[in-house]
Design a protein around this nucleic acid. Sequence first.
DNA 1: CCAATTTACCAAAAGCTTTTGGTAAACATT
DNA 2: AATGTTTACCAAAAGCTTTTGGTAAATTGG
Lengths: 358, 358
Amino acid sequence: MRRFQKSTIRDVAERAGVSITTVSHVVHGKASACSKETKKRVEEAIQQLQYTPNSLSQSLHQKGTGIIGVGVQPPTNIKQFGSAFAEQVWLGLSQAADYLGTSLLQFPSVIRDNIACEPFLNGQIDGLILSENSDNTRLDALERAGLPTVTITRSRNFPTSIGAVFANEEDVVRLALDHLRSLGHTRIAHVAGPIEQKQRPGEVLHVNDIALWRHDAFATSMREQHASPPLISGGLSWSHQDDASTLLRDWLSLPEPPTALFCANDQIAQEMVVAARSLGREVPKDLSIVGVDNTSLPDTTNLSLTTIEIPSFDIGYESLFCLQRLRSGSPIEQCRVMLPVTRLVPGESTAPPPSHKK
Amino acid sequence: MRRFQKSTIRDVAERAGVSITTVSHVVHGKASACSKETKKRVEEAIQQLQYTPNSLSQSLHQKGTGIIGVGVQPPTNIKQFGSAFAEQVWLGLSQAADYLGTSLLQFPSVIRDNIACEPFLNGQIDGLILSENSDNTRLDALERAGLPTVTITRSRNFPTSIGAVFANEEDVVRLALDHLRSLGHTRIAHVAGPIEQKQRPGEVLHVNDIALWRHDAFATSMREQHASPPLISGGLSWSHQDDASTLLRDWLSLPEPPTALFCANDQIAQEMVVAARSLGREVPKDLSIVGVDNTSLPDTTNLSLTTIEIPSFDIGYESLFCLQRLRSGSPIEQCRVMLPVTRLVPGESTAPPPSHKK
DNA sequence: CCAATTTACCAAAAGCTTTTGGTAAACATT
DNA sequence: AATGTTTACCAAAAGCTTTTGGTAAATTGG
């Protein structure tokens, strides 16, 4: 198949018998310096040659491509089932992009994972939206590179000129604990995400800001309630099967075992359900379990989870506006958006504690 | 905020005291003509200035950006609930892109809808994947523009040098009819999508190739079975509430009314469920209904639909490989992929016909 | 020691556009 | 008629890179 040779502005100029400048003027409607006569000739030539300006050249000249890079981890490793979080974020982003008339560029993971080290991006994009799993080293590099960046890291710490959109994790904890307490639970444990720098061989484990924030909020809340035992919490890796039942066995053999678990995400929650069953406990009769995310995970437990819904769509949607503000030079505080979390999705995994007499 | 001035290859050259050419050589590892001494100096300068080549310029020169444009209609108008089809396609695309190391560019609808008329795209993208709702005029224009294009129009007719990935609609019809017949149905009606050029004021209605194909396959199958009444079929708009009950009332008042409906998509199917109920019929007791798409639509009917699952993930996945072949000049037949449809998702909307005695 | 080759590097063109700073002619003003 | 102002257009620079076709010096071979 013969590769079609695009016609350039020069071809048009030649055909119309005018200069390149004039063609450019006609194309961009700078009619000021152009007779009707000439204009018509140029337009005809454009028509005949099917000329359209090369946008690469245009962007090169006028700085800015109208494209925003998106480094949100797409759900690539599971076939039919992606992360509902990423999907909702993407939906929000799409909608905002549609509204603002920007294009969205999604990188393959090869590039995404090196995004700071070697920004191919250079010039290609006007800004970047990056998801949670980008560590601060990377963000620092991006800041130095001068690329306006907004993270949706759902976290609190980031370099000074980087924007951020995240959920209020105190809301999350409050919703979960209020729900459990209103059912009558007092001994509530928290299964956290990776909050310690513990590392198994061959596995890199980041301390996760959100995990830490949730953990802290949980600890504070439990202290305020003078709950006894004050708090239990295990720094479980963000998801790792075999830990679950070991941890749970230890907890359940305590003199005053917890009657409810607040888990850092739905996946951990599901694992705990499995673990509880393997230890002969019934959920929710013997043990109530709350997750976070409202990820519609493939259901391995046959039990709908009580969970806290993170406003992932809104995070995606807001982040683009946030980036817009950042690019237009708004003060950085206006580029940090904390979204309230308001929705607890009731499920079948929570009930009053076993000892609770009505 | 001071806009950071990117350093250029010229800056590096100056700093290292060499020519631009040499810097370019070092950057691209053409070590042939370069002493270790110089190389080190250049590398230091690059390091100090945080230089990275401007990819716009690079692409301008070497033709090809490694970016594929995606004109799949994203689910923009419904907040939390997009079209599951588009989402799955997007997932498939993402995964293929990841595998191939290409980036994906998603346009806002302003651009997407004019994509052929005025291809901004010129140079910006190496190829295009376009979803169903692009008419042939547009495809013709793209073909003329020489942009390698693959449609996932799920259809049969397209310009000669355009690739396509689509589902086998005969499979779809066969699955649906086999299911209904095995339940005992013989009088089956088909509620088609827009197969006639009928148009209400203010509404543009395209004749839809898929709708037509399904319709034809249905007609053929019914004729083969010598079904009486031979076939009934209404050219309903691809989704329009008020038509549904009018149509159904007409059909049910026939001397031999249909006992099952095969609907062109899940949305139509849902409307038919509503219509049936409003006419005092129970689904599936009095009337069985089959949809197509396995769209997880917001459930307005409180009834899980029996439906045919279109392999939307695979359509997305395959389309990128298809485009790859198209770009590398493979014969066009190899850029036309028809995917088999194998999965009927059982639901609560089908049952044996009322007259059927066991 | 001279010629031939290799090495190390560079200037300039090519790639396509937009913008700046013009010129030459036509027209208006006094 | 001389000066000023538009009008209609253009050449060249700028934007950043890669590649081509060199040159000058260093090295090798006879």
